[in-house]
Amino acid sequence: MSDLSVDYEVLNRVRHNLDQIADLMKKPGREMESVDGTSMGVPELARRMDDFGDEWSYGIKQLTKFSAKASKALLKM
């Protein structure tokens, strides 16, 4: 006898939500990559904006990958 019970309907909803998160995050990630810091005018602000855009884009890509992988893992259960 097992103490573990799995509600597959809940898992399917979680997987669907993770798929939606991955899809939702792709657009802002692409848009942030194209932000050009020089449009800020001040050189230091432009450099910081470029750095922020790069880091933000990387973070969004990581969240997108995690969501997609978590969704696939739930399909294997």
Rank of each mutant, 00 (worst) to 15 (best):
L11Q: 12
Q62N: 13
N12R: 15
G37D: 04
R47W: 01
D51V: 02
S39W: 05
R13T: 08
T64V: 12
G53Y: 08
I60V: 10
N17V: 05
T38I: 12
K65I: 10
V6K: 14
R15E: 15
M1D: 06
E31C: 08
L74Q: 06
V14F: 09
E44C: 05
G59D: 15
P43G: 03
R30A: 05
W56E: 00
S71I: 01
R15I: 07
L74N: 04
L74M: 11
L63I: 11
P28K: 03
D7W: 08
I21S: 04
Q62H: 10
G29A: 11
G41R: 01
K72N: 13
K69C: 07
S5D: 11
Y58P: 00
G37Y: 04
L18A: 01
G29V: 04
L11H: 11
L75P: 01
K72M: 10
N17M: 09
F66Q: 11
D3I: 10
P43T: 06
Y8D: 11
S5V: 14
L18S: 00
M77W: 13
E55W: 07
S71M: 01
G53A: 15
M40Y: 06
T64F: 05
L24A: 13
E55D: 11
E33T: 06
K65Y: 13
L24I: 05
R47D: 03
D19L: 07
G41A: 01
S5M: 11
N12M: 12
Y8H: 14
G37R: 04
D3M: 11
